[in-house]
Amino acid sequence: MTEYTEAELEAAHEQLIDNDLGDDGLRTDGGAVGADDQNAPIVVKIGGARAVNPEDALADVAHLVANGEDVVVVHGGSTAVDDTLERLGEDPEYVETPGGVVGRFTDETTMEVFEMVLPGKLNTDLVAGLQNQGVNAVGLSGADGKLLTGPRKSAVKVVEDGRKKIKRGDHSGKIEAVNDDLLSTLLAGSYVPVVTVPMLAEESSGEGTATEFTPVNADADRAAAAVAGALGGELVVLTDVEGVYEDPEDSDSLIESVGTPAELDAAEDAAEGFMTKKVMAAVEALEGGAASVTVADANNRDPITAARTGHGTTFE
């Protein structure tokens, strides 16, 4: 099914091996990370942020697949959800917890738009983009084959005008299980799963009735972490900065490696804003069984290969 000729693949592979990544002379020959677990799947989280163009990442997925790696792509797309809500004349709603965390409140209309944008437009376009790179991608949401399941959280505790409230009707949940059989089945068939949220939340209506499943919102970084954990894979989280900085104001303070509890504490303390979610996801992935997690810049050339060869912050 691939669109590459044998010769093109060979050339791409050579170019990849010869490619100097620049500032530090590291070569992308699959050194440090991954040499010991050549067969562990590579789970790549690509960003939904406006700043990140996925084309380079998709081309790099094609390189990896051509080299015989098993790859799973995971993506979000929160800003695209907001854009579509606005086109529909709806205001995206964000709420703050008593602890100061800001998150989306996903009412029924927002959930509908979520389904339209993530498994709909973004996933279809990403799959088509990968097909154009010669990668036989198959799009999945967490509802497909019960890929991502867990309890629903329909009530959240929020602070509004300085008062704490219980706000009900949230369509959100916590991923507790991954159907790795579906991913393995597709990988064994030489397909590249392209995974996105919603997840499928389980609710029991109470009186001994059957469990009811509802598609709900879940964080895409944590979805990627759950997938990497379930597959025992290497997780590469592409974002729009080079990794976790000790001092976000100082671009020389990139933390390259997080291996000890003390280093993890330091990384957790250092992470600010959206990066706290990446660090949280990294911890969840490792606890779930992932081989390693690297947070790296999507704007690098061959960004996945770069991440796997020392560019970014690697958690092990």
């Binding site: 979000g76 929160s78 959800v81 917890t97 008593p98 602890g99 965390v101 998150g103 989306r104 996903t106 979520f114 959280k153 009530a155 959240v156 505790k157 704490k164 219980i166 959100s172 949940g173 916590k174 949220v197 709900v216 919102n217 879940a218 964080d219 895409a220």
Partner: peptide, 24 residues
């Protein structure tokens, strides 16, 4: 933590335990 579940007359019940994190 007590949740006000009715206003007139006021009815309180123990607020549900909820984790403080969200989705996407």
């Amino acid at each position: 933590e007590l949740e006000l579940v009715e206003r007139n007359p006021p009815v309180l019940q123990r607020a549900p335990e909820l984790e403080e994190d969200w989705g996407e």
